[in-house]
Design a protein around this nucleic acid. Sequence first.
RNA 1: GCCCCCAUCGUCUAGCGGCCUAGGACAUCGCCCUUUCAAGGCGACGGCGGGGAUUCGAAUUCCCCUGGGGGCACCA
Length: 482
Amino acid sequence: MSKVRVRFAPSPTGSLHIGSARTALFNYLFARHMGGVFVLRIEDTDMKRSLREHEHSISRDLHWLGLTADEGPDVGGPWGPYRQSERSHLYEEGVQRLLAEGHAYLCFCSQERLDDVKKAQLARGEMPKYDRQCLSLSAEEVESRLAAGEQATVRFKVPPGQIEYQDMIRGHLSFASDVIGDFIIKRTDGGFSYNYAVVIDDMGMRITHVIRGEDHVTNTARQLLLFRALGEEPPTYAHHSMIHAPDGGKLSKRHGATSIGEFRDLGYLPEAMVNYLALLAWHPGDERELFRLPELVEAFTMERVSKSPAIFDIDKLNWLNGVYMRELSPGRLYSQVEPFLHEADMHLEPGQREVVAAAIQSNLVTLADAPTYAEVFTADVDLKDSPHLAALREPGVTQVFSLLEEALAQFYDEYLSVEDGRAVVRMVAGACKEHGIKGRSIYLPLRVALTGRNEGAELYYLVAGLGRSRVLARLEAARAYL
RNA sequence: GCCCCCAUCGUCUAGCGGCCUAGGACAUCGCCCUUUCAAGGCGACGGCGGGGAUUCGAAUUCCCCUGGGGGCACCA
């Protein structure tokens, strides 16, 4: 059996959508699992809407997800070029062959006539399809109209019969070919249609498995017919379901983020995206839920891809994002979170970075939440704005403040490690116990004095991450409210 | 209108004729841990769209209905 070759074939008319990203993921997983090759092909036949800028952003997003292609416009490969816009000669060759062998014919119908025919068919309740007006044109007439400078398209002559194939996900699929009209394969502007170009490319790039969205199932019939006419063996197809919005409809901007780039900007980790997208239509067969890319490669099989559409659920993505953020070491978490802090004009001292990262780690849903939780470590606090001052008026608080000052005096560095922070708080608590000072005079009062708030990270994180001078200054300021 | 696909908790899903009193995860709620917020642990709530048929037996097979989605371009 020949080596598996799959392709992900986006058209560069926008950024990478999460639906396309999942298609790319399934292609990647199948290829890697089978020890095959993952090809990236750019479908830029529509010159009007295709932008090189979009191609780059798609590549960047794929790379961010870890879905690197083995062959493609950036890395090359033996069956290129990998942009449809650079493959015109191959398409032309095929068109000439189809024309010569009677599988295609020239059509001179105007757009207006085509629209009228379609309208009439729709009115009669028929499936709209080309009425084959130009199929019966004589060679002489074609010749003379061409000579007269008339514009023509090339249409594929759809043969009668039944089209059947085995879909890896959907099983046996069958279409009557008379429901599809003679479709255009070459446009008047000289460009080639999607359904045709795809066949020439899948053929030329030796693609063995086509894994794509369900929106392509009816295209498959056309493509299969083309393969047959060209005398080539078609690839095996697998059509996965689509991603729906929470209301069951199409996923659109009004439901929030829809592109991979947006999710990245919102502070989601690629691990979470990959894991979530995989789980959206695939199941490992056991009860595991957490999968990084290599584990997915290992476990992925097409048999376990679901047929039914899935609704995008931000809550589960959020949960996964939290899981992966909590797995990061404080240092790595800080570097992930740094751009978001800077974006919020928040700059942490080197000495406090890891402490702060550790302090806020369990609060984060996305990296973008970091400034909200880290703010307490950098912002100035004016206690007179605090609604929690009553907490300071517990017996013994003055003494507690002094005990903290004393404990802190044993350290020289401005910022303490989490461990030293813990030790300081332990010292204070121990001394308080000796002096008979109760907990309610310790924890809340200190928290309010240091932050003005009544909730937040553990006290030892605050002590360590705030830094000696800030802690001492705030205790001093808080004395005015005792 | 015509063609194709899909259908288990709110959501993602397990289930491929008896292991189902339908399992897991997210969300929700409760308890525990924590003198705070989270995180974490434990638990609760919650589902086979409807109707026929096959079978000793159906969430699982078949048919119809209903609902949802996709397609029907000189777009990809």
